[in-house]
């Protein structure tokens, strides 16, 4: 397996060597090459420039490039580590690595904290949680009165905000998540364990001699 190498590499800007990426992440070289097949598909869906634009990210998630969603935009912004408005291949792989079933739980907890810390203050504030609840309601048919939302916030903060300062710090978040592990369900993508099966064509594009 893996003898389909020795062709000149033609990669878009932002491409990173799979061997280097494998040493930095939970993925094997083969898995990274398979992820490149997925990356090529997503990054060429609207603008074929080897970078994932927000519209392409939305299209991959919702089958609709115009659908606005606070959470998808937050995920995009966290993947866009260089904060230049696009996701390159290295950013894609490094960020997805956190979602691998074998990635450390601590990394998943930390990523979720950043996701919910909308204003990047180092705390998840009550106003931010309210904003996220309202965003969630607007994407579903669920209707909750402001009183009910405030009650949910009271209960959540009574449990999570142990020092009662109306915001959740990193340590409080870690303790809260450990008591409520279902909150981390979205932070693991079982697909990532089978990525080479999902994109077997990576073998034909492999530039690495031993991809086994």
């Amino acid at each position: 397996m893996g003898c389909f190498h020795s062709k000149p590499s033609q990669h878009a800007a932002g491409y990173e060597d799979p061997v280097a990426l494998a040493s930095d992440t939970t993925f094997s070289v083969s898995e990274i090459e398979a992820l490149y097949e997925l990356f090529k598909k997503i990054s060429s869906s609207v603008i074929d420039d080897g970078l994932i634009h927000k519209e392409e990210f939305r299209l991959a998630l919702f089958k609709n490039s115009k659908k606005e969603n606070l959470f998808a935009d937050r995920v995009f912004d966290l993947f866009d580590v260089k904060r230049n408005g696009v996701i390159d291949f290295g950013e894609f792989v490094r960020s997805l690595s956190v979602f691998h079933p074998n990635a450390p739980l601590e990394d998943k907890i930390d990523f979720a904290f950043q996701l919910y810390d909308l204003r990047r203050t180092g705390f998840i504030e009550r106003e931010e949680v309210k904003q996220m609840l309202i965003a969630l309601l607007s994407e579903s048919d669920m209707k909750l009165s402001d009183d009910v939302i405030e009650t949910i916030l009271d209960k959540t903060f009574a449990e999570a905000d142990t020092n009662n300062d109306s915001r959740i710090d990193k340590e409080e978040w870690q303790n809260f998540v450990l008591r409520n592990p279902s909150l981390m369900k979205n932070m693991t993508l079982p697909y990532l364990k089978d990525i080479t099966t999902a994109f077997p064509s990576f073998v034909f594009n492999s530039e690495v001699e031993d991809v086994a």
């Binding site: 997925l38 997503i42 991959a60 998630l61 919702f62 969603n69 606070l70 959470f71 998808a72 935009d73 937050r74 995920v75 997805l96 979602f99 996701l115 919910y116 949680v129 996220m132 609840l133 965003a135 969630l136 994407e139 009650t151 949910i152 916030l153 209960k155 959540t156 449990e159 999570a160 809260f176 409520n180 279902s182 909150l183 369900k185 979205n186 993508l189 697909y191 990525i195 999902a198």
Partner: peptide
Amino acid sequence: AKPNPMNAFELISTSQGLDLSALFEE
């Protein structure tokens, strides 16, 4: 354990935008 509907983060985590498994679907 059953999800607690009074936990704001349980509710938020049901958002479609947080389900990245859709990236892997055809």
